[in-house]
Amino acid sequence: MIQFHNVTYTYNFNTDTCKDAIKNINLKILPGEFLAIIGQTGSGKSTLVEHMNGLKKPTVGEVFVSGQDIWQKKFDITKVRFKVGLVFQYPEHQMFEQDVFSEIAFGLRNNGIAETKIESLIFEALDFVGLPHDILNSSPFDFSGGQKRKIAIASTIAMQPDVIILDEPTAGLDPYSSELLLKKFKDYNKNKGKTVILVSHSMEEVVRFADRVIVMHNGEIKMEGEPRKIFTKVEELNEMGLDVPQILKVFLELRKLGFPARADIYTVEEAKQEFFRLKNLTKGGKSFVK
């Protein structure tokens, strides 16, 4: 779907404060996968995703979307933007229209979609984010923070991109709204077979939703693979300033206390099973504590 070939991006001004560039990235994103990208602030995550829809042009290397080199001469880069939708952090800050309808229609109109088709696409997008249809005439600025976020996301979803990139979509939302939103995107990924790329700080989110995770550090991809496997490397992750899910930390503590607990426990369900496994072991008369 998206392919990076030796991509390097350097800022033309090299001030000391700016480290957020990327180096020698090779990456293949498959159609229909749910990919997570994690890394500290300034690790290059944002720069990486901005290459995926042609917002940034690599200094060296090529980016392919559906097999097309997007920086080839004569190729219209705006086409990529409709194929790969990017939802920025705090997307509600981008709103400018007088009513919700025009706000969501903005991308569609830029893409030259016929007015007759626009309405049904907007309804679909509203259903997706879970907003009622009767809000279309109100001003997008009259809503609460969480609802504004949904409207802004709907404006990208309405374009029905094959790939959707979400840069920390849950920042500032309460836990309940966050959960609901991510579930929607999991559905989008599963039921429609679309590619979803999630930039996140929350390891719990990553374990629960992503098929594959990329760990960025100092502009490079340091680790890549199934979240369950990646998170076993706790020490390496900590060195990169990243955290692991809470429940895993508890079981790692248990290991320190001498119990042969597994080091890949991420969900409450797994934790429960592991606890009873350990319990059965101790029942058998084994003692792990000196």
Partner: peptide, 28 residues
Amino acid sequence: KLGENINPGILDLKECADELAAALKGNK
């Protein structure tokens, strides 16, 4: 809920591990 004697009000990760350890040991 499953009948283990674990204090659900624990919020510190280390304390939680200790509590689990005690429950496992108590079993023995």
